[in-house]
């Protein structure tokens, strides 16, 4: 099993509903986010192009955060989901420094926090909170090993990219372009 997510940059309108859903579902402390929206405007007026991306932890296959964690608090869970165990985390910040996507942050309680792909929801057969609330249905989630999953199907049909693949992390958050 290999969980992955694909975000359709052509359908995303940047409403940030996913961000709020994540904060609510996961009790993210005020002022922080596990998930965020990025808008990139490129070109010269009037030939402009805009890309909107809903970004979060890339749940990398070759995750630098898991590699550099001195206590094993950052670990791979079911389906390759990268999690932090707050009971093992010493808050040293090594994983935060190691993430090329800056997807982690220091939780006010001391440990490090990040996107969990809503593993508690997946285990109950639900989608991650961000995917379930998206009004344009632009977030696809599923098992890459299952050829009929949402995410496998859409990645077969569409062109996609990942963020900084040259960092060698093998990210599992895909952007349809």
């Amino acid at each position: 099993m290999r969980y992955a997510m694909a975000v359709d940059t052509k359908k995303c309108v940047g409403c940030s509903d996913c961000v709020v859903a994540c904060q609510t579902e996961n009790n993210v402390p005020i002022g922080y986010c596990r998930e965020w929206v990025v808008e990139v405007m490129a070109g010269t007026y009037p030939q402009l192009e805009m890309e909107i991306r809903s970004e979060r932890c890339n749940h990398c296959v070759n995750a630098p955060c898991v590699r550099c964690c001195p206590t094993g608090a950052s670990h791979f869970s079911d389906g390759g989901i990268v999690l932090v165990d707050p009971k093992k985390c010493i808050g040293c910040g090594a994983c935060i420094a190691s993430c090329p996507y800056d997807a982690r942050y220091p939780h006010p309680d001391g440990h490090v926090d990040k996107c969990t792909f809503c593993i508690h929801r997946i285990k109950n057969g639900l989608e991650p909170a961000c995917a379930s609330v998206c009004p344009t249905k632009c977030i696809y989630f599923g098992d890459m090993d299952d050829p009929n999953s949402n995410v496998s199907v859409v990645l077969k049909k569409r062109k996609f990219k990942t963020l900084i693949p040259e960092a060698g992390t093998d990210p599992q958050l895909y952007f349809l372009i």
Partner: peptide, 12 residues
Amino acid sequence: EIFVSGRMNHLV
């Protein structure tokens, strides 16, 4: 290119 991010995590 103009890059706008909605993320403003403290210390990050």
